[in-house]
Simulated assay, not measured.
Amino acid sequence: MSGLRRVLSRFRRVPRSRWLRRALLVAALGAVLAGAATGASVVWVRSGAAGHLFTVEDVPEAPVALVLGAQVDPGGQPSAFLAARLEIARQLLAAGKVHAVLVSGDHMDWGYDEPGAMRRWLVERGVPERKVVLDHAGFDTYDSCARARRIFGVRQATVVTQSFHLARAVTLCRTLGVEANGVGDETAKRFPLLWRRGVVREYGAGVKAGWDVLSGRDPVHLGRRETGVDDALRD
């Protein structure tokens, strides 16, 4: 006990200013490292997507549109952001720019089904059901891209999402083996608060994407090879 009291007494004698300086130094170092990681991820994302971002009119033809999931509102209706993505996919299919649509989203809980809601939206607007393939385990952008390649055998695709998210999505897909171009939605800018929140979120999401690639992690769920895309294209 006497030894412990001596150690504690030494800590008490250390000036508070010294502890404050150390805390500030650690905080500053953390900020520098976070800034460096963010900067590096921005460069990686932008360079990876350079030359691969298009509009509906000028995007090159690809076998599949990969539509990334987003929030589904109560009642099973796609949110405005997700509906905008689906409308782009519908236009691509109608124009012959793609020949099947892979909708990839979160279906972790039985009562919340992004892919199912996405398919319903498309079918209700005239897209043949046989042309829509569901990926129920697209829990994030990395998982959607990895599963498109490893589970559904997609080698070439047009990725569809909001424009602030598009460069990261295209870069991830290309890094994971999908020859991807992208078409981004701008119509959701009519929701400025949500749009700005998405833009800001991309900085942190880019760092996570870089870590996912460097770590080489598997998607949350892999499972067996699925032939849905092959069947849709053959049909």
Rank of each mutant, 00 (worst) to 15 (best):
R6V: 02
V7A: 15
V7R: 15
V7G: 14
R12I: 12
R13G: 09
P15A: 03
P15V: 02
P15R: 08
P15Q: 01
L20F: 13
L20A: 15
R21M: 07
R21T: 06
R21W: 06
R22P: 03
R22H: 08
R22G: 10
A23E: 03
A23V: 11
A23F: 08
A23M: 10
A23T: 09
L25M: 13
L25W: 03
V26T: 01
A27G: 05
A27T: 01
A28V: 13
A31P: 07
V32C: 00
L33T: 09
L33H: 06
A34Q: 13
G35D: 01
A36C: 12
A37E: 07
T38C: 15
G39Q: 10
A40F: 07
A40N: 09
S41P: 10
S41C: 09
V43H: 10
V43T: 08
V45A: 07
V45M: 06
R46E: 14
S47R: 15
H52P: 09
L53N: 05
T55H: 04
V56S: 09
V56P: 12
V56G: 08
V56D: 03
V59L: 10
P60A: 06
P60E: 01
E61R: 15
A62P: 05
A62N: 04
A62H: 05
P63I: 07
A65N: 05
A65H: 03
L66H: 10
L68Y: 05
G69Y: 01
G69I: 01
A70I: 06
A70L: 09
Q71V: 10
Q71R: 13
V72N: 04
D73H: 12
D73T: 13
P74W: 03
G75F: 01
G75R: 05
G76D: 03
G76A: 07
G76Y: 04
Q77G: 10
Q77K: 15
Q77Y: 08
P78N: 07
S79G: 12
S79K: 11
S79D: 04
F81M: 14
F81P: 11
R85Q: 08
L86D: 08
L86E: 07
L86V: 11
I88N: 02
A89F: 02
R90M: 01
R90H: 02
L92Q: 07
A94F: 04
A95Q: 14
A95W: 06
A95C: 07
G96S: 00
G96C: 01
K97R: 15
V98H: 12
V98E: 11
V101Y: 03
L102I: 03
L102W: 03
L102F: 03
V103P: 13
S104M: 11
S104A: 14
G105C: 12
G105K: 14
M108R: 14
W110M: 15
W110Q: 15
W110L: 15
G111H: 06
Y112D: 02
D113S: 14
E114F: 01
E114I: 00
P115H: 00
P115I: 00
G116K: 14
M118Y: 01
M118P: 03
W121M: 01
W121A: 01
